[in-house]
């Protein structure tokens, strides 16, 4: 059973993959998500909301990813930045658990 409330902000340029990730995230009890596709709206959202996980989806330029990985941990140390791989449900849960290992109890049940 998932124990933690986690709010995700997903950034990427592929709308269908963003929708998929939001759907996968919100299918988990106590997990909520919002998506955006560019830096300005990402930072605007971070200013106004408490975000636990900033998930880097696909399509971002290398320089944009680098800036996010550099700036966000400094300005929002409470927000974990996770570069997502795979595009769907296969790795997402494990990526989150690698950062929040105590977020789930009985995760393999």
């Amino acid at each position: 059973m998932l124990m933690w409330n986690l709010h995700f902000l997903v950034i990427g340029t592929n709308e269908i993959i963003l929708e998929t990730l939001v759907r996968v995230i919100t299918s988990v009890d106590h997990w909520t998500a919002h998506s955006c596709n560019e830096l300005e709206s990402m930072f605007e959202y971070l200013k106004q909301h408490e975000v636990n996980v900033l998930l880097l989806s696909s399509g971002l330029e290398d320089e944009v990813e680098r800036k996010i990985k550099t700036i966000v941990p400094f300005l929002y140390p409470e927000t974990a930045v996770i570069a997502h791989y795979g595009g769907g449900s296969g790795l997402l849960r494990n990526e989150v658990l690698s950062v929040f290992p105590d977020a789930i109890a009985n995760q393999n049940s």
Binding site: L39, F43, K67, K69, T70, I71, P73, F74, A80, V81, I82, A83, Y85, L91, N94, E95, S98, V99
Partner: peptide, 18 residues
Amino acid sequence: MFAATATLGNILNNDNDE
């Protein structure tokens, strides 16, 4: 933001990737 990037340099790392 980009000025901030240059200021921060590489002293900060993303420690949260899998």
